[in-house]
């Protein structure tokens, strides 16, 4: 019997690795999910209103998207964010992470501005409070200001439809099925 122990251990390891292959070890789930959004107080890019606080995010679901003009992944997700903004399905707030104002103005001018508001986190201090470790990252807040989901890496249609809509969609439209929209 004890001669079969090694092969049993091997079988266990193989199963473990099979599961492991399906996962990305670099993704770090946020401990902030299902907690109230961390406090912040940041200047807006266009100055109207001059500053925004956590409380200003409440009232309706909102996507808080940390981005930067120097980040390649942000360019990847940008067309989809533009599409989301045009569809008006959800409010988008951008946090410009460790960036220069001139750079981000030029960048948004070139690629379009999908955000209802853009906040400037010039020194990355708010990013730390939100546990951001690599832009782009997107936090999904419900109407009460609780973080319900975090997307690490570029936002995609796949992630939005499958992971995010079920969390925020029902409150907005009653039936999450909007597949036929252009």
């Amino acid at each position: 019997m004890r001669y079969a122990i090694p092969i049993a251990v091997l079988a266990g390891l193989l199963v473990l690795f099979m599961v492991g292959l399906q996962r990305d070890p670099r993704l770090v789930p946020s401990p902030l999910v299902s907690k109230p959004a961390p406090a912040f107080d940041l200047p807006t890019l266009d100055g109207t209103p001059p500053r925004m606080r956590t409380a200003d995010l409440r009232g309706a679901p909102v996507l808080v998207n940390f981005f930067a003009s120097w980040c390649a992944g942000c360019q990847d997700e940008h067309p989809y964010l533009m599409e989301l903004a045009r569809s008006g399905r959800v409010r988008l707030v951008g946090v410009d992470y460790k960036d220069a104002a001139d750079d981000v103005h030029a960048w948004l001018g070139r690629h379009g501005n999908p955000y209802a508001s853009v906040l400037a986190d010039a020194d990355g201090r708010t990013g730390i409070d939100w546990g951001v470790y690599g832009v782009p990252e997107t936090f999904v807040l419900d109407a009460a200001g609780t973080i319900v989901y975090k997307q690490i890496g570029p936002m995609t249609q796949q992630a939005f439809e499958h992971n995010i809509m079920p969390l925020i969609g029902n409150r907005e439209s009653g039936n999450g099925n909007r597949g036929g929209q252009p």
Binding site: A72, D76, G134, G153, P154
Partner: peptide, 8 residues
């Protein structure tokens, strides 16, 4: 996950 993300 995004290839560019991985590249970084």
């Amino acid at each position: 996950p995004s290839a560019r993300f991985a590249v970084r």
